[in-house]
Design a protein around this nucleic acid. Structure first.
Lengths: 338, 338
DNA sequence: GTGAAAGCGCTAACAG
DNA sequence: CTGTTAGCGCTTTCAC
């Protein structure tokens, strides 16, 4: 049987309220009493019952993070880092983190509704935003506190942090064009994902800026995994007139493209240039190392968590819509057109 | 203001108890009444307050998963899959999942104590077990429900699921020896980790079984990351008399070793054989693809979660100590000694 | 079959 | 400064 406030109060022959006050460190308790309470609580091994606290405070002190599309064999190095950033920041502010992985095919909106309606968390973190994101629309409608990693096409305003994929792709393209590339292919992530649109827009914008035509056949919309990149890469590179450079919508796919290129006997960085987006840790150690656009993913996790915490505590909203610029990291997988 | 049981009861002019019963689907309510309650609850948008339920039931319906050593740039493809397995299984049984990432250097035992003492979760999942695992010792002492992924050197008995790393390494070694390898190096994970010991034991056992001497200089204890593997690989391969095969304690390190080998101009699979352990998704797509020992990590996540759930519900314990055999997956990174 | 009442353990008025 | 009293919203005896 756990020790309760009542137990401590009885032992000291004071009221339960006094014990509560002393422990909560609120004014209105004689210093001497406070000390006695603290000592007794310590000695008796008192620990608050958090569920009771939460019921009474009507707050859960818990943040929710729902990870989408997370089935068997879905292992994104990217998410663990994001999770670490979020988790560590939450812990620092004494918040619990409730993580839900949504099995593929499960009704995801229902999960959001449950979490919101049953008040399991005080606020939510939404990642991988979509064009018409039903989750975001729902949270806005419910006026439920949340912060998104990524923008959306919805009209309503909401707090988000995003990385400027369009600017990133423009910079990467400019670099490749400067290296002499003219036939640059692009392996896109699914276009219902918002970030995929911005990146593709950057690709197209850069083309027109360089006076190059937009060639539909050089753009393929894949999935998100290394396997998807592999397949797209194979297809591109076996053509009669293959592209001299291939950009993938994320590093995982870029690694897949690299794998395909190497399997076909091509020297990546010389025969064909390959670049990605994210800068996951394997990008640096791939062979050759991968040119990419870095998203400081751990810091992003920290940051969106922090934004949500501010929202919940009503602290200075400052800027509630942040746009970060990704950093171009040129490595060995790209070079002058051979 | 959320709708409460009281609100529904008032509307129907019945008692709050009746509403509670009807909603909980317990016997003792007239079918007609139940229907009326259900309809009213639905219409009024009633959702239970889970904190109140938890306080009263004295259960949290929450499982805890504390991820160790999780700082910036620590991205293990392995963990996201484990998390997915655990999370999906927990969700299936209506349990919430509380994830704590422990910032490096933070007192981890304190975290366990807090979670246990403040009853934030009903049970815990412990991963990456250590020789004298203080966490496990603590949980046993507190008689707190938990299941470990991995064994320990502690004397007490506790429920666990583990993959037989020793058997795995013996099989892998036998295969390499059969390919003609005699100088086989081993890059170990830190030896305070239990799994590292078993794997090393398998390596040594296989050597003696093959009549080969144990050469200390061929074993190096590294960390866990691809970078650690890279460094160890570089060191091994630049020697006057380098090993013809290198096994790494996990795939991430094996990929690092491969990177080092390729940087030195070696053809992996021909000039030098390299193998890992885990079979993360990148193992298959590495170039060349990586020979490894597969741990069905998603299923392991599901399974340990399930074991914990059984423990909590007092359901048939069946076997509470499970040992799985890893599967040897031979790919292109290993071959006959060149 | 239904209702009244007693908590679960805690916080926060409100008195004294 | 301290104690008394009301809940937070729910489940569960125990009567009727």
């Amino acid at each position: 049987m756990p020790v309760t406030l009542q137990d401590v109060a009885d032992r000291l022959s004071v009221s339960i309220a006094t014990v509560s006050r002393a422990l909560a460190d609120v004014p209105g308790v004689a210093p001497a009493t406070r000390l006695r309470v603290l000592a007794a609580a310590e000695e008796m091994g008192y620990h608050p019952n958090v569920m009771a606290q939460r019921l009474q405070k009507r707050r859960t002190d818990t943040l929710g993070f729902i990870i989408p599309t997370f089935g068997p064999r879905f292992s994104d190095p990217y998410f663990s880092e994001l999770l670490a950033g979020i988790g560590n920041e939450a812990a620092e502010h004494e918040y619990d983190l409730l993580v839900s992985t949504r099995a593929p095919g499960t009704e995801e909106l229902a999960l959001y509704e449950r979490v919101v309606k049953e008040r399991r968390v005080d606020g939510l973190l939404v990642v991988r935003t979509r064009r018409q994101d039903a989750r975001i629309a729902y949270l806005i409608e419910q006026q439920f506190p949340f912060v998104a990693f990524g923008r959306s096409d919805l009209e309503g305003d909401f707090p988000y942090l995003d990385v400027d994929g369009q600017a990133g792709l423009e910079e990467l393209m400019a670099y490749l064009v400067a290296q002499g590339h003219r036939r640059i292919a692009y392996v896109s992530a699914p276009l219902n994902l918002m970030f995929a649109n911005y990146r593709l827009a950057g690709y197209r914008e850069a083309l027109s800026r360089a006076g190059l035509p937009y060639d539909e056949s050089l753009v393929v919309t894949g999935g998100l995994t290394d396997m998807d990149g592999y397949e797209a890469g194979r297809e591109f590179l076996q053509r009669a007139n293959p592209p001299t450079a291939i950009i993938a919508g994320n590093d995982l796919m870029a690694l897949g493209v690299m794998s395909a290129a190497q399997e076909l006997g091509l020297r990546v960085g010389r025969d064909v240039s390959i670049a990605g987006f994210d800068d996951i840790s394997l990008a640096e150690l791939a062979h050759p190392s991968l040119t990419t656009l870095r998203q400081p993913i751990y810091q992003i996790g920290q940051r969106i968590c922090d934004m949500l915490l501010c929202l919940l505590n009503g602290t200075a909203p400052e800027v509630s819509q942040v746009l970060l610029k990704p950093e171009l990291i040129v490595r060995q997988s790209t070079g002058r057109v051979g």
